[in-house]
């Protein structure tokens, strides 16, 4: 029997309480919606202001390299003897160079080359590096040893030499030859990184548990190895893109990359460097774009690394 509760201060009576039947199935339900790993990554990436700002800058840069050259009437090749070395103004928004060409148009046309090189080379490096590193890590033993020695030997070759030789082989220096030359050796870093990750992941307890439970090897690779390697590869990819943009700029600056009348941020920087003491704005705009692109991808890489780190999952 229930005793009547008497409390002079609160006046609590049994009528105030309602008995609720307990449903075991309902009690086990999780109130929070189930989210996938990638949804969780996106949720945490959204909380990173710097990473979100960098995504915004990248989108803006991509939009500008596509649409920017159409914002005014000038061509990136068009020379004007009456408009040499004009400082930024209402007509020439970023000024003109020593040949009277509009820097605003040239910056965005040049950006196409730089961004294409960054994205394509990084993508090739990722595909080749992941394939090579995964094979080395999974097979192990002598195969792994030989494969990694090959990587070390390739790393010994100065990429300057490879770029110039590829250009000599193809008998021309254009976007294709630069892409080929930079991609030939760029995958070595990714392959090392992937191999290391595969070696550590394949000996983890959860992989061992899956194998013990009789899960097929292909399923182990897809469910356990690839997701764990993918995170570090995506981060590596975002760090590789600015690296390739810098490599292109470096080669053009040295006079062994793309050749005028082609234009890239590297070519523009190289041409402007000789005039820097007198017309610093000519160097400012292309280098600002290189810096902005490198900064954006670096911050995005940092943000992705934090978002993809399983240890940080809440």
């Amino acid at each position: 029997m229930e005793k009547e509760i008497k409390d002079t201060n609160l006046n609590i009576t049994p009528e105030m309480f309602k008995r609720i039947p307990r449903d075991d199935i309902e009690a086990e339900k999780i109130a929070r919606p189930i989210i996938t790993f990638w949804e969780d990554v996106w949720r945490r990436l959204k909380m990173n202001r710097a990473a979100m700002l960098s995504i915004g800058i990248i989108i803006l840069l991509v939009f500008m390299v596509i649409a920017g050259p159409h914002f005014n009437k000038f061509s990136f090749k068009e020379q004007n003897a009456q408009a040499l070395n004009i400082s930024p103004n209402g007509t020439y928004w970023f000024g003109t160079d020593t040949a009277g060409r509009d820097i605003f148009t040239r910056v965005w046309v040049g950006g196409r080359v730089s961004i294409v090189i960054g994205l394509v080379c990084a993508f090739i490096a990722m595909i080749v590096g992941v394939a090579y590193g995964s094979i080395a890590g999974l097979v192990g033993g002598k195969v792994d040893n030989i494969m990694m020695r090959i990587v070390e030997i390739i790393s010994c070759l100065p990429y300057l030499l490879i770029v110039i030789l590829v250009c000599l082989w193809l008998n021309k220096t254009n976007l294709g030859s630069i892409l080929l030359a930079l991609s030939l050796t760029s995958w070595t870093g990714t392959s090392r990184m992937v191999r290391g990750q595969v070696l550590s992941v394949k000996n983890e307890e959860y992989v061992l548990a899956a194998r013990t439970l009789g899960v097929p090897t292909w399923k182990v690779i897809i469910r356990h190895i690839i997701p764990n390697v993918l995170a570090i590869v995506i981060v590596g990819l975002t760090f590789d893109i600015p690296g390739f943009i810098f490599s292109e700029a470096f080669l053009s600056y040295m006079g062994i990359g793309l050749q005028p009348p082609d234009v890239s941020w590297g070519i523009m920087s190289s041409e402007a460097q000789t005039q820097m003491m007198f017309y610093p704005y000519q160097l400012f705009f292309p280098t600002l774009m290189i810096a902005l692109t490198m900064l954006s991808f670096t911050l995005l890489g940092d943000g992705l690394r934090d978002a993809l780190d399983p240890k940080l999952r809440k």
Binding site: P242, F250, P280, M294, L295
Partner: peptide, 22 residues
């Protein structure tokens, strides 16, 4: 660190030449 990763060495060299040299 962000500036160092962002600014290429040749840009840094040009900036140093301009400000501290010229």
């Amino acid at each position: 660190a962000i500036l160092g990763v962002t600014i290429p060495s040749f840009v840094m060299a040009s900036l140093l030449q301009y400000f501290f040299g010229a």
